[in-house]
């Protein structure tokens, strides 16, 4: 990996952290607001089904996680397990794709 790529990944991790901070706040505020009158599966689905704004926010949330987590894991793998190089990077790309895929599928599951 070139130094420029490493640096851009670092920037991407900081930027995705900023996005995550906003998403987590909205997420927590929504939970606190929504649970006040008790919570059922039907109630949640009634709110999320067909709600474009909800789907958009959580899609952004999922994508930010898929960017943020693998880059952090890159440093953890290098510093704790000495795993560096191409095989690690490929494994992390797979990890990012799996995170994004599972997350987006979950979003679709409660939206559609």
């Amino acid at each position: 990996m070139t130094r420029r790529t490493e640096t851009l990944l670092w920037v991407a991790q900081r930027a995705s952290a900023a996005v995550l901070a906003v998403c987590v706040l909205v997420h927590l505020a929504t939970i606190i607001y929504a649970v006040q009158g008790g919570l059922t599966g039907a109630e949640i689905l009634a709110r999320t089904r067909g709600n474009i704004a909800w789907a958009a926010l959580y899609s952004v949330f999922v994508l930010a996680v898929a960017v943020h987590a693998p880059i952090g894991l890159k440093a953890v793998l290098a510093e704790w397990f000495g795993w560096r190089g191409r095989a690690r990077d490929l494994a992390l790309i797979v990890f990012a794709v799996v995170l994004a895929g599972m997350g987006l599928q979950a979003v679709r599951g409660v939206f559609a």
């Binding site: 990996m1 070139t2 130094r3 420029r4 640096t7 890159k74 440093a75 560096r84």
Partner: peptide
């Protein structure tokens, strides 16, 4: 800046 960038440099 090139020398100090990257995972062996300041970003770590």
């Amino acid at each position: 800046l090139r020398a100090v960038a990257g995972d062996a440099g300041c970003l770590s």
